[in-house]
């Protein structure tokens, strides 16, 4: 999995963003990237071998309605995943930042605990809960809210649930960090000047913690475009995302050049996101230091 191009695609810009780029990392990643870029302009013969014959056909195929549909679906899933993550992570991070050190540690453990088990196993467990004969359907029927089991698995909702479940810590950590760093005397100054809790939140806390939301959004949005195993398990093939198409080209269709073109497209989207982040992030940073 670590060698899959899809994984690499999302990992490159992430590394560039989180850590100061170290030279060897670039070298290690630059070479395969160049290879991907080259084969995205190539074709294949009948036995699926790559033929170095320049073509733009792979890129033209990106505008195929089916592919565009998958892109759209993928973007919807990623955007909704990000929004839901923000809505959960912000209050979580806020409470974590303002509670006692002991409860802070406890919350952190509860957040990270699931990630010490395999993510596939964790996702499978959702099937047990959400499936037609799952516990939730059983319970809803038992309390008489529904008559027949409802389909919860293999929907877009299920994919988003899986994504949120997998990616939530990546939102919580930056959001928590920035809220925790917020100078408490700013909050007190706001209250001293007549603002209540919500006014202080809207005027001071939120604007000053937006950089954390941005950083978290990047960390969630980009993987949400590519985590094909989540849509495989939770969407059951009904809800494909970009990552699914890419992985299929490499593993089943053996059309590496088209897979490469899809990957390049994903990299472009990713770079645009990162660019947007550093742009606004840069400005916010400047404001963030008195």
């Amino acid at each position: 999995m670590f060698n899959s191009p899809a994984f690499r695609k999302k990992t490159v810009p992430l590394f560039a963003m989180i850590s100061p780029v170290t030279a060897w990392l670039v070298l290690l990643i630059a070479a395969p990237l160049v290879y991907i870029l080259i084969i995205s302009f190539c074709t294949t013969n009948e036995s699926h071998n790559i033929v170095f014959h320049f073509t733009l056909r792979n890129y033209a195929r990106l505008f195929d309605p089916t592919i565009l549909g998958i892109y759209t679906n993928s973007l919807i899933v990623a955007v909704l995943t990000t929004v839901v993550c923000i809505l959960i992570a912000y209050p979580f991070g806020y409470i974590m930042a303002s509670t006692s050190p002991f409860k802070k540690t406890l919350m952190m453990i509860f957040l990270m605990l699931p990630f010490w088990t395999n993510s596939l196993i964790r996702l499978y467990s959702w099937r047990v809960l959400l499936g037609k004969n799952g516990y939730i359907n059983d319970f809803l029927i038992y309390i008489g809210l529904i008559d027949a089991p409802i389909e919860m698995m293999f929907t877009r909702g299920a994919v988003i649930l899986g994504m949120v479940y997998t990616l939530l810590p990546f939102m919580v950590l930056p959001v928590y960090t920035v809220i925790d760093k917020l100078d408490n005397s700013l909050i007190e100054a706001s209250k001293d000047l007549g603002a209540g809790f919500w006014q202080t939140f809207r005027n001071i806390t939120l604007p000053l913690t937006v950089p954390g939301i941005f950083a978290g959004s990047i960390m969630v949005f980009i993987p949400a475009l590519g985590y094909f195993f989540v849509s495989d398990l939770m969407g059951g093939g009904n809800n494909q995302i970009i990552g699914n198409v890419i992985s299929r080209q490499f593993k089943e269709a053996y059309n590496w050049p088209f897979g490469a073109a899809l990957s390049i497209m994903l990299i472009v989207i990713t770079l645009i996101c990162v660019k947007l982040y550093t742009r606004s992030g840069g400005k916010l940073d400047e404001l963030g230091t008195v």
């Binding site: 100078d183 005397s185 700013l186 007190e188 100054a189 706001s190 209250k191 001293d192 000047l193 007549g194 603002a195 209540g196 005027n203 001071i204 604007p207 000053l208 404001l287 963030g288 230091t289 008195v290």
Partner: peptide, 29 residues
């Protein structure tokens, strides 16, 4: 509450709102 007391504070670290200009800072109250 602090704002229900006829009192204001000048904080040790100034506690100016970094994302607001001077006008908005002073006008806040």
């Amino acid at each position: 509450e602090p704002f229900e007391r006829n009192i204001n504070t000048v904080f040790q670290s100034y506690a100016l709102f970094p994302h607001m200009n001077i006008y908005d800072n002073i006008a806040y109250g």
